[in-house]
Amino acid sequence: MSTAEDVIVEPGTARKYHTGSWRSKKPVVDKEKCINCLFCWMFCPDNSIIVEGGEMKGIKYTHCKGCGICSRQCPKDAITMVEEGEE
């Protein structure tokens, strides 16, 4: 029955779809300025802020669509949007 009905058997498979290719601008983090408030994580629509052990470790460029919300919401201006390919 697996794919015989319109039911998706495997969860979270959307990860296989790399929305990073949609991006025209790219967020670049300056970890010197980052205070790990994780606002970027809270407001990222695409689960593309990498957090390990409570620390912001970078951006998952495979899926980041480059919306710029993280950059706009960063209280320390630690994330800059640069033209894709110009960093």
Binding site: D6, V7, I8, P11
Partner: peptide, 13 residues
């Protein structure tokens, strides 16, 4: 064992 019922189905499926 989570499943998604009633997903969006395009011409491929």
């Amino acid at each position: 064992s989570p499943h998604s019922f009633g997903p969006f189905d395009m011409p491929e499926y």
